[in-house]
Design a protein around this nucleic acid. Structure first.
Lengths: 337, 337
DNA sequence: TTGTAAGCGTTATCAG
DNA sequence: CTGATAACGCTTACAA
């Protein structure tokens, strides 16, 4: 900026004013400054800027694991909005480890981010609500969190899954749930259970197997379910990855899906349609989740002071080939639809 | 820091020295300072720090699209190393748009990152080599880039794919390639072609269809291939996503894989084993790619001055069920293995 | 060994 | 409407 001021023959303050389009700088000076800015290839230093302003154009985003195929679309949803408004994203993976979450939270703060977007690992950030940093939770809602969040309709979506299974004649059903310490896993289980109960179908405790939202644990949980007597005719996995794991477990057990056991899941990832059979699944809009959260965060950053926004995005049942119709004429026939 | 200095009854400089473990501060003072630091919950301001030191502990990472399932593992590989060394990652998606790449490049610079990790969209950063910022390219190597990079053995891997197809008796083969402006797409095609030629199998121009490394374009390219007369008995897709797209195209054409047409691909994503049939594919170590690149970058940041490192990671053929053996007794039988 | 002060690149205040 | 100048929080000579 010194350079610019010198080449343009004005003072530092004027340069700053021009750059920030602040007060009305005389046109000819403005032009001189602009030209100098160009020719010198000047780029403002975001650090000094942030230091002075006490905040940067950085958005901190904390997620469990970018490697879980549900999260990339959320991140992308955020990044697109951020980019449009020239915010930059610092990405952190917690692996659902609360310790790592805290570390990241503290570290991030020292960069003076404009705001934070978190898919919480566990409920460990209560103290943060009042810390004066815009913060919106995504996908999972900590119990004691009363700030902004945007999630999907987990209970409703799961109940649709349950109803679909029931419509198709299934009565003996197993569930592979995610870690029950996570609100979304809990909600999916609850919604499913409630819908089942409403239909007078019971869900024995041993029919609920807890896994970790990944392929391998889903596989193992399914194996346990398949050993049950009588064997469940259908399995609800609360995410696609675990469903895929279950699918391979079914095959390994020498059974086939959906003839011997049906599978329905929650996520609706692009890839879930390429398994065989293509997964019947409850789609949740990941990209939109990120998009919405980012937009909300930006509003907060701009100073919007309305009460906590709690946005719930709808899900959508996608019927494909992994659920058999027990009510159809021939019991072991082709899947419906 | 003022606070700390005051509470500990020392001066600012001493506090700084304690925090940075710099010069020998008398033990009792050190303790006093440390205690004060704790009790005040002090976290150093990374901006002022960066401003002063003229660089931050930020690593900028520019990738095409986090939504492409190959990249998350690369990013994770980077992030894990970065985290260990308490660097933070700013993530940018270019969508292979050179304009966006440049924008990001410039912006990132104004945060004074310690280094940059780039999966280049196109060859547009020549001027950057000398700009004095540690920078390593990942996955794709721009033609005129003579700095550090870490890639996988694209040619070698593709030639393995070709050889496998030939071993299985395929002679009429189609290829779905990624954008040929990308070095990795080019290399995969070249390696495949070379291996074919070596085996005296020719690859007609119309048998090479260019797509964009995604499901949809892969689908379309496959459809074109399937209309060829005579129809290819096998298709090589240069990534898993396009292979999956091809798989659905095969089904839509009323054909089945691998009986009517075999598919082999490049990537080896976790999910590729859950398609039906499970994809025979050339695995490339995404996580390791990121890991290695991050390690190399950190070395550079620490000041390692050895000549350009050009690291090529090996791939690995994973034979699964999507390639049929034309040499087996019955022509339309179960896939081998 | 410890304290003082200059300066990193901005922005904001305030006098001219 | 413009230009000096202080301040943001930290590091690092250099002086004490």
């Amino acid at each position: 900026m010194h350079q610019i001021a010198k080449t343009a023959g004005v003072s530092l303050g004027t340069v700053s004013n021009v750059i920030n389009g602040n007060s009305t700088v005389k046109e000819h000076l403005r032009l001189r400054v602009l030209r100098a800015t160009q020719s010198l290839g000047y780029m403002p230093n975001q650090l000094s800027r942030g230091l002075r302003l006490n905040k940067t154009s950085i958005i901190g985003m904390i997620i469990p694991d970018i490697t879980n195929p549900f999260f990339p679309s959320v991140v992308r949803g955020v990044e697109d909005i951020a980019y449009q408004h020239s915010y930059r994203l610092i990405l952190c993976n917690t692996d659902n480890d609360p310790q790592k979450e805290i570390t990241y939270l503290n570290d991030l703060r020292s960069f003076l981010p404009a705001g934070l977007l978190i898919i919480p690992a566990v409920d460990s950030m209560i103290t943060w609500s009042a810390q004066g940093l815009p913060l919106v939770c995504i996908d999972r809602r900590p119990h004691n969190w009363d700030g902004d969040f945007v999630v999907v309709a987990n209970e409703r979506g799961s109940s649709e899954a349950a109803n679909h299974l029931i419509r198709m004649g299934h009565r003996h059903i197993g569930v592979i749930t995610g870690p029950l310490s996570l609100t979304n896993a809990r909600e999916r289980l609850d919604g499913f259970d409630a819908a089942l109960r409403k239909a007078k179908v019971s869900l024995a405790p041993e029919c609920i197997q807890e896994a970790r939202f990944d392929l391998e644990s889903g596989h193992k949980a399914a194996a346990r379910l398949l050993h049950l007597l009588p064997r469940p005719t259908a399995i609800f996995a609360t995410n696609d990855l675990m469903a895929l794991g279950a699918l391979s477990a079914v095959r390994e057990a020498g059974l086939s899906c959906p003839q011997d056991v049906s599978i329905i899941s929650f996520d609706g990832l692009d890839i879930s349609q390429f398994s065989t059979p293509a997964l019947t699944t409850v789609y949740q809009p990941g990209y939109q989740l990120g998009n919405t959260a980012a937009r909300l965060l930006l509003e907060r950053i701009e100073g919007n002071k309305k009460g906590p926004q709690q946005i719930v995005l709808p899900t959508q049942l996608r019927v494909r080939d992994s659920v058999s119709n027990l009510k159809s004429v021939a019991p072991s026939t082709e899947p419906p639809n």
